[in-house]
Design a protein around this nucleic acid. Structure first.
Lengths: 352, 352
DNA sequence: CCTGGCACTCTCGGGGTGAGAGTGCTAATG
DNA sequence: CATTAGCACTCTCACCCCGAGAGTGCCAGG
C-alpha cells in the first residue's frame, strides 16, 4: 500500500478541487499559483510524479497536466474531503416540493428524483422499496365501475398506493368489503413478500377445495400485489449529461443513455449497496454495473427496517462531492421524514 | 403554384424513398440505377434541376446530390404516399401492452407513449385530455389513514383517476361519504372545467355564510380537481434521437433535449392541431413551436366529444411515413378503444 | 530539499493538396 | 424534341505537414 505524506495529500486535494472546477487537466504551474504555500512548479512536479506512480493521477498525454484517477477520488471522498452545509434555500425547496407532492407514493418519488437532478445538475433517481421491506397496514377493495376494482394499499409508514384492476365479471360491493376486512385482518403488519406467498398458498388451497367465489376474490388480491419490478425505478434529468464535457462526443453519450434505458443494471448496483448507508460508487469499482466513466452517490431512505429504498445521483466522477453528498443525504432524510410523517405508529394494534 | 408532371412526381417520390432509407443526399446516378424506367443520370439531372427550382429539393453543397425539402415531404404526405398495413405482430403487441396496463389512466398513457416510441423508433408522447373535454361520472372520497384522504374520480368512459390528499385535521368517514354522494349527484355528467368553476363559487358562498365544516370539505374537493397541467404530457424515448444521424452533433442535440424539458411548447403545438384528426406537422410549418429540424405525426383519441386528447411521435422529418402514420393511427384507435372498453353507458342512472 | 533552466513530447489549429463525388452545360443522337 | 454522352467545374473530405503552445522530466546548482 502507498502512504502519502500530508503535503502530497494537500496537493492531491487541491488538484481535485481545481479539476472539478475547470474540467481540464491540472498543470504544475496552475497548481503552484493556486496554492497558498508557495511551492515552485518544479517542486510540485516532483510530488505529482510521486502521485502518478501511486496511481492517484494520470495524464491524458505527455504534455497535458494531470487528472485525478478514481483511486484519487476514493481517497478524497473517504479521507480528504469535508462536507459542506446545505444552503437554506435548498432545504426550503426540498421541503416545499415534497410537501406539494402529497402522500402519493408515485408523485413523491417523481418529485424526489427531480429534486435530486436539479440540485446536483446530474441524473437523479429513486428506487422504491422492495417487497421484502414493505409492510402493509391495510388493504381495501372498492368497486368503482362495472368490471373495475380499485385496490388501495396502505403501507406501514402512511404511504398509499392505489391502482385500478380490470376484472372479468362484476364484483359485489359486499363481497369486496368482506375481502378487504379479511385480508387486512390476516395480513396487517406483514411484508408484501410474505403476503404474496401466503396468498398463493391460500389460493391453491381454495381452488383445490372448489371454492370458486373465494378463489376468484383471492386471485384479484394476488394480482393487486403482483405488480413487481415495473415502476420501481424513477429517473429524472438524463439530459443533464449533455452538459458534461466528459460526454461531449455522441458515441459515448449513446452508450450511457442506453444504460439508463435498461434499468435492470441500475437495479443491481443499487441493491448491492443498499445496506451501506450513504456511499459513493465509482464506475471502475462497480464491476460492470455502471459505465466506468460514471459514478453514483447513493443513500438509503426509509424508517428503520421497514420500507427501505435507495436514492441518489449519477454523473461523472468529477463532481463537487462536498456539496452533492450532503444534498443526497438531505433528500434521503427528507423522503424518510415524509414517509413517516404524522407518526401514526401508536395506532398499531398489538392486542392479538 | 408549381405543377409537377407525373414523371417528376415519380422521381420525387423515389428520391424521398431513397433518402429516408440512406439518410444521405441522393445523386442522379443512384436514382437512375434504382428506378425501373431506365433514364440516364443526365436526364434525371434535368428533372432534379426543375424540382430544385420548384423548391422541392435542396443541395447541401454544389456536389452533394439532392435532399427533399419540407415542401417535398408535404407533397409526399398529402398526395404521393400510400399507407402501408400495420403488421400483425405490431397489432398484437399494442393490444397486449395496453391490456396489461389495465384501466389506470397514468399507466395507460405511459404504456401508449412507450409503444409509440418503440414502434416508430422516435420520441413518443401522449397528451391527456384536458379539463374541457373530460366528463366526470362520479367522485368518491375515502379516509385511508389519519390526515390522508383518497380521492377517486371516475370519468365518462370508464377511466379511473385516484390520488391521495393530505389534510390538516381528520375527516369523519361519514362526512366524506356525504360529500361523495352530494358532489356526484350534483356534478355527474359535467366537465372537469365546469365542476371546478362551480366549486369555486359554492366555496365562496359557503365561506361567506360561515359554514366552516362544509367549506372545509369543498376545499378538499377543489384541491382534488385542481391538479391541472402537471402530469398531462407523457413522453418516452427521447434518447432515440441519439440514433438519428441528423442529430449527430452535440450542440443540436442539446437544443432539442431542452425543448422536451419545457413541455409547454409541445402543448401549444398539440392543442393547435387537436381538432384535425391525424396530421403531420413539419418543424418549418410550426411557427416556432418546434425545432425546424423536427417534425411530428399527431392524431387525436377519445370517444366523440368527451375525453379528447392527442398522441403521436416526434422525430426528424426524414421518416418512413407510410409505416409510421398507420402506427400512430392504430395507437389512437387502440387507446380510444381502451377508454371506452366494456361500454357501460347503459348503466347510467337516469331516474332522478 | 528546493528551484531555475532546458530539452523533449504531445496536442491543436491552420493551410495545402489530391482524390472523389456530383453537378451543369453543351453538343451529338435516335 | 426528348434523351444522352462527355467534359469542365465545384465542393467536400481526409490526409499531411508544420509551427506555436503547453507541460513535463530531469539535471545541476543553490
Amino acid at each position: 500500500m502507498f502512504m502519502l505524506d500530508p503535503r502530497a495529500r494537500g496537493i492531491l486535494k487541491e488538484i481535485i478541487r481545481l479539476h472539478v472546477d475547470t474540467g481540464r487537466p491540472v498543470s504544475s504551474r496552475a497548481l503552484s499559483k493556486s496554492i497558498r504555500n508557495g511551492l515552485s512548479p518544479a517542486s510540485i512536479r516532483n510530488i505529482m510524479a510521486d502521485l502518478t506512480d501511486g496511481g492517484f493521477l494520470a495524464q491524458p498525454h505527455t504534455s497535458a497536466g494531470r487528472v485525478p484517477t478514481d483511486r484519487a477520488y476514493r481517497l478524497y471522498i473517504d479521507e480528504l474531503m469535508r462536507h459542506r452545509k446545505v444552503a437554506d434555500d435548498v432545504r426550503e425547496q426540498v421541503d416545499s416540493d415534497l410537501a406539494s407532492a402529497g402522500a402519493d407514493m408515485t408523485r413523491l418519488f417523481q418529485a424526489s428524483s427531480r429534486l435530486l437532478s436539479r440540485l446536483s445538475g446530474e441524473v437523479g433517481f429513486v428506487v422504491a422499496p422492495d417487497a421484502v421491506h414493505t409492510r402493509v397496514r391495510s388493504l381495501r377493495f372498492l368497486a368503482v365501475a362495472p368490471g373495475k376494482v380499485l385496490v388501495v394499499q396502505v403501507h406501514d409508514p402512511d404511504v398509499v398506493v392505489s391502482q385500478v384492476l380490470e376484472t372479468d365479471g362484476a364484483f359485489n360491493p359486499r363481497e369486496l368489503e368482506a375481502l378487504s376486512e379479511r385480508l387486512t385482518r390476516e395480513f396487517a403488519g406483514r411484508t408484501l413478500q410474505e403476503i404474496r406467498q401466503a396468498l398463493m398458498e391460500e389460493l391453491a388451497r381454495e381452488r383445490a377445495a372448489g371454492a370458486q367465489a373465494l378463489a376468484r376474490a383471492l386471485e384479484l388480491a394476488r394480482r393487486a400485489l403482483d405488480r413487481e419490478g415495473e415502476d420501481r425505478v424513477y429517473v429524472d434529468g438524463t439530459s443533464r449529461l449533455l452538459d458534461k464535457p466528459e460526454f461531449a462526443d455522441v458515441t459515448s453519450l449513446k452508450r450511457v443513455f442506453r444504460s439508463f434505458d435498461e434499468r435492470a443494471r441500475l437495479f443491481d448496483l443499487v441493491t448491492r449497496y443498499l445496506e451501506k448507508g450513504t456511499c459513493v460508487v465509482l464506475g471502475s469499482e462497480s464491476e460492470g454495473d455502471m459505465d466506468p466513466r460514471l459514478s453514483a452517490v447513493l443513500t438509503s431512505y426509509g424508517s428503520g427496517e421497514t420500507l427501505t429504498g435507495t436514492l441518489g445521483v449519477i454523473g461523472p466522477a468529477r463532481r463537487e462531492y462536498p456539496r452533492v453528498i450532503p444534498v443526497v443525504e438531505l433528500l434521503g432524510r427528507a423522503l424518510s421524514g415524509r414517509l413517516e410523517a404524522k407518526d401514526s405508529r401508536a395506532e398499531e394494534d398489538e392486542t392479538e
